[in-house]
Amino acid sequence: MAEMEFGFLNSMQNWHEKLDDFAMWEGEVALALAADRHGFDSLWCVEHHFDAYGMCPDNIQYLSYLAPLTKTAKLVPGAVILPWHDPLRVAEKMAMLEYFAPGRTALGIGRGLARREYLGFRQDMNESRERYAEAARMVLDALDNGFIEGNGKFYKQPRVDIRPKPLRGYSDALYCVAMSEDSALAAAELGGRMMTFIQWPIERHVPMIESYRKAFAEFHPHLDVPEPVLTDVTVCHEDPEEAKRLAYEYLSKHYVSVVKHYEFAGDHFKDIKGYEGYQAAADLIKSAGMEESQKNYVEAQNWGTPAQIIEKYRERLDLIGPFFALVEFSYGGMPFEYAQNSLRLFAEKVIPEVRKMFSNTGKVTARPAALAEQG
């Protein structure tokens, strides 16, 4: 059985009071390089636009910069928001990234959630699901076959070669952002690994994980169901009280930025095709109130001393079986020295113990219980 995987996520936020964007960028790059040195399996970077919430408008370009500076970690755009891109350009840029880091690439894709970003790109959010599905198939086929073509509703693409030629396809290295059950089912249909951000106690994520597993097994009966990717905003500190202080200060600020960026205090999701499910989450936030919602969000993340974090991973393994742990250490204006300390301590104390624990679970596959009972 393979080891449990750990990834590091750059979110490229600048809520720092005294840092300009260049200094923030240097701090984020230093974190990524430290994650590679400390043995993280992969380096990820989000794509966002027009706001301090996330200042990496081209994560494939960013990973191309990291490629010669890193040694072992896989490089994963987490994720390319397909409706905002020409599929041809996505395929070309991924092919180039492979040449900078042969054997060290994977592909992450998503469809985006922020209305402000869709407006900036002059895109109709009502079209996002159809655009995503059409573009995803074109990009995956292009990287498999070495050429791209399309005659769909949105992309009329004459057949052209991808040069340099892709070194690999991504049927076994595809990650799909899934923050709703619809997106989880779309990930399963494409054959991608579901990547989600922890928002609630893990028990509330289980139904979507199980739906994904069941759908994946039905769409791809000849394949093992891949482990889901669970993303936490993390603080790791030797002192439990200091860990709690940092978590409640900076995770709370991060939560406020999430609600603001995605307009979770609004009612617009119910009127946008393909996003109706997000309105329920927005309504929960409004009904609970901001203070209570902040507290619930902070408590759902995996933070604390190394021992506390290990125990929370143990609880998750017991509940859902094997998963891929993706962690974010820099957010909410947290000073980079705190983020670096979290990363170092997590790598030294948490990763080895959780991998040991994972290897002793005896759970080789991630098939849902209902399917396992059916044989």
Rank of each mutant, 00 (worst) to 15 (best):
Q123R: 14
M125Q: 03
N126G: 15
N126K: 12
N126V: 05
N126W: 06
E127V: 02
S128F: 02
E130L: 14
E130K: 13
R131N: 04
R131E: 01
Y132H: 10
Y132R: 02
Y132M: 14
E134V: 11
A135F: 01
A135N: 01
R137L: 12
M138E: 03
M138R: 01
V139W: 00
D141E: 15
D141I: 04
L143R: 00
D144G: 10
N145Y: 09
N145S: 14
G146S: 12
G146A: 10
F147V: 08
I148M: 04
I148V: 15
E149V: 06
N151P: 04
N151S: 14
G152Y: 02
G152V: 11
K153I: 14
K153R: 15
F154E: 00
K156D: 13
V160T: 13
D161P: 03
I162D: 03
I162T: 10
I162K: 00
K165V: 04
K165S: 12
P166Q: 03
P166M: 04
R168L: 04
G169Y: 04
Y170N: 00
S171G: 14
L174K: 00
Y175N: 03
Y175W: 13
C176I: 15
A178S: 14
A178V: 02
S180H: 05
S180V: 03
S180D: 05
S180K: 05
D182A: 11
A184Y: 02
A186D: 11
A186H: 03
A187G: 08
A187E: 10
A188K: 01
A188S: 09
A188E: 08
A188R: 00
A188W: 05
E189L: 07
E189T: 04
E189R: 14
G192N: 06
R193M: 10
M194F: 05
M194Q: 10
M195G: 11
T196F: 09
Q199V: 05
Q199H: 11
